Simulated assay, not measured.
Amino acid sequence: MSELISEQILARLKKEAGETGRPEQRLATLERLVEACNAVADGSALSLMQKGNPAAEAHFRRRWVSIVPPRIEDYVIARRALDLLARAQN
């Protein structure tokens, strides 16, 4: 089975991140980006929006949500809000 272009790009980015300064931080950023893209692609981001970024929820109700910077930003805002809420409750 052939590797997807996105997998090739990610592999290249991870390789480059490992060869530059602060590889741990760069790799962690890439992992967060992959998490966000996967959540948008598989539809699981909708429940996150409902809890952490209701203003953006409408963008995630469609059957297909494009993986574009504004949707990734919506995901990041929701994830940050829920993480802050969880920390405040502990």
Rank of each mutant, 00 (worst) to 15 (best):
M1E: 13
S2N: 09
S2P: 14
E3Y: 10
E3F: 05
E3S: 08
L4C: 09
I5T: 11
S6V: 14
E7R: 11
A11Y: 02
R12G: 04
R12C: 08
R12Q: 10
L13I: 01
L13E: 01
K14N: 08
K14S: 13
K14R: 15
K15S: 14
A17V: 02
A17Y: 03
E19T: 04
E19D: 05
G21L: 15
G21Y: 06
R22M: 14
R22P: 00
R22H: 13
P23V: 08
L27W: 03
A28L: 10
L30F: 00
L30Y: 03
R32K: 11
L33M: 12
E35D: 08
C37S: 08
N38A: 14
N38S: 10
A39E: 05
V40R: 11
V40E: 07
A41S: 13
A41F: 11
A41V: 06
D42V: 08
G43K: 04
G43E: 03
A45G: 01
S47Q: 15
Q50F: 00
K51H: 00
K51D: 06
N53C: 04
P54E: 06
P54T: 05
A55V: 04
A56S: 08
E57I: 10
A58D: 12
A58V: 03
H59W: 07
F60H: 07
R61N: 02
R62M: 12
W64I: 12
W64C: 11
W64Q: 13
V65W: 02
S66E: 14
S66L: 13
I67K: 09
P69D: 06
R71H: 13
E73K: 09
D74Y: 00
Y75V: 06
V76W: 10
I77N: 07
A78Q: 02
R79G: 02
R79F: 10
R79H: 12
R80P: 00
A81I: 06
A81P: 02
A81Y: 03
A81F: 05
L82W: 02
L82Y: 06
D83T: 14
A88I: 06
Q89H: 10
N90C: 05
